[in-house]
Design a protein around this nucleic acid. Sequence first.
DNA 1: ACAACAAGATTTGTATACAATCATCATTCG
DNA 2: CGAATGATGATTGTATACAAATCTTGTTGT
Lengths: 242, 242
Amino acid sequence: MERSPAQHLPDKTEPAPKQRIQDEIRRDIIFGVLPSGSRVTEAALASKYGISRVPVREALRALEMEGFVESKPYAGSTVAAIPFDEAEDLFAVREALEAVIARRAARRAAAQFAAGRPDDGWWGIRKEIAQILHDGDEAVAADLQERLPELNIRFHLAIAELGSSTSLTALLRQIARKIEWLYAADVKSRGKHSWSEHWAIMAAIDAGNADDAGTLMAAHVNESRVGYVSRFRSEDSDSPAG
Amino acid sequence: MERSPAQHLPDKTEPAPKQRIQDEIRRDIIFGVLPSGSRVTEAALASKYGISRVPVREALRALEMEGFVESKPYAGSTVAAIPFDEAEDLFAVREALEAVIARRAARRAAAQFAAGRPDDGWWGIRKEIAQILHDGDEAVAADLQERLPELNIRFHLAIAELGSSTSLTALLRQIARKIEWLYAADVKSRGKHSWSEHWAIMAAIDAGNADDAGTLMAAHVNESRVGYVSRFRSEDSDSPAG
DNA sequence: ACAACAAGATTTGTATACAATCATCATTCG
DNA sequence: CGAATGATGATTGTATACAAATCTTGTTGT
């Protein structure tokens, strides 16, 4: 068939203009380049990225559903804001969600090995996780902790994919990006949130131990939450993503 | 100015073509008019609803993010399917999510009353909930239980809005629609899932009792889950939304 | 008969043009 | 002088046209 060379490398060559600018805008929002409340017009973004208004429009709509921008009909779009008091609630929901995800991943791992050999899709994700864990260890050893947030999100999302539940993966993606937004408001907050715990979680999943996986994951997320609130609690109710 | 008569009645006259067909398509998916796996092309939907491809396109993208359709670049969109084994996980996440939401609503209610008089936005939602509760009681009394699912979703979403957390509301909307999809697969499943419990939850929120509100809500969702699994457990692993 | 291959058709992705609506500001009337 | 009002500009919503990519189908060679 002689497929296109960009088959399983959708992020290297040209990841489709729409997705590209969507990630770009979200990144600018998360890292404060586009502050909360600022207006984002389709025409301005279109000319900025050298493309038409249609892809920009779709990207804005997607970001609206993700909660990063708010738009009213015929009135335009503005960058949203996360009130500070939502942070703890988001962490609480994430803890429950990730516990369910970890349990599911463990159950599926056990089922895969019980049925003989796991299928290729499972192994593909499993190998990606191994790579992520390795890269994280390397980053910790080299004191390049600014790489950890990205690797951290990728790890958690990969665990979700290992459970092969598109619904739960989508939910986690939504929550994780919001929490990343809250974190990014403080530049010096990007420490190693106990990267080593990831290994234990992965081991429990590999062993097919759903209870341990869920418990470890919940504790892991909870520790992340404690780290967050202890850092921001002193700054009163100032909006971190504003 | 002589405003358009469709000012605060966005659902009666012409609720914007895009939103309209988006809801229409989702409804057709939820109730099986568009079965899982069937192809949905932009051109067909455009001609069906007598509009252009652009609004159809945006609606499909939104539904893709909601998880109702899957689409690959240049390949088209197909109606998605919820594997049966995701149902219990969705209920588990929803239980945790709604408990957090109820607690938040109770905290906010207490704060509103503590600060003198609640603002108009809060009262608007509160009055809407009163109406929903009333309509639900009427439907139960008149044995018109087919109206309860819609009222049920509206109640739970209104509680989320009472807590004024856009993030949590968006998450609940995503989960609730998925669960509605699972429910709708069985036509005779639309019973009164203990509507009276809603009154107790609302009372706890009004009293500002976060612990009670969260506990009652969790129990309420859990009961719904039990009702679901007891109904579908016998049908083995048949995909209910397929 | 079957597989590899290529051309046509179908469908999505993008660009441009136009219509509908809202925000702003000058104007005018009380 | 203030507030309602009407015109103007800016921005989004929609429609149409074209380009890019994929899927299907017919063909051909073994």
